[in-house]
C-alpha cells in the first residue's frame, strides 16, 4: 500500500513535468512557424543577397536546434551520447559541404 501512495506522488510529479514540457514544445512550434514566415518574407521582399543569406542560415540553424532540443528531447538528462553523435555528424557534415563546394568541382 505504501508503495502505491509513493508511486502516486511520482505519477503526479511526472504528469506535471510532462505538461510543462508540452507547453515548451507548443511555444517552440509557434516560434518555428514565425521563423519560417520571416524566412519566406525575406525572400519575397527581395532584400539584398548579402543580407538575406546569412539571416536565412541562422533562422534554419535555430529551427534545427529547436527540433533537436525540444521536439527530440535532447535538452533532457541522459542525452550526452545523442549530443555527441549529432555534433560529430554536424562536424563531418560541415567538412563535407566545404570540401564539395570549394575544392572538388571548382
Amino acid at each position: 500500500m505504501a508503495k502505491d501512495t509513493n508511486s502516486n506522488h511520482a505519477d503526479q510529479y511526472y504528469k506535471a513535468k510532462k505538461k510543462e514540457e508540452m507547453k515548451h514544445q507548443v511555444i517552440t512550434f509557434a516560434l518555428m512557424i514565425v521563423f519560417t514566415i520571416i524566412a519566406f518574407g525575406l525572400v519575397i521582399g527581395e532584400f539584398d543577397k548579402l543580407f538575406v543569406f546569412p539571416v536565412l542560415l541562422v533562422l534554419a540553424a535555430v529551427q534545427v536546434g529547436f527540433q533537436f532540443y525540444y521536439f527530440m528531447h535532447m535538452s533532457h538528462k541522459g542525452h550526452e551520447f545523442p549530443a555527441l553523435m549529432i555534433y560529430s555528424g554536424i562536424f563531418a557534415a560541415i567538412l563535407t559541404i566545404l570540401a564539395l563546394t570549394t575544392i572538388t568541382w571548382v
Binding site: 545523442p82 549529432i86 555528424g89 563531418a92 557534415a93 560541415i94 563535407t96 559541404i97
Partner: peptide, 10 residues
C-alpha cells in the same frame, strides 16, 4: 541519425 546527417551533407 549522426550518419544520416553526413549522408545528407554530401
Amino acid at each position: 541519425l549522426g550518419g544520416e546527417t553526413v549522408l545528407f551533407a554530401s
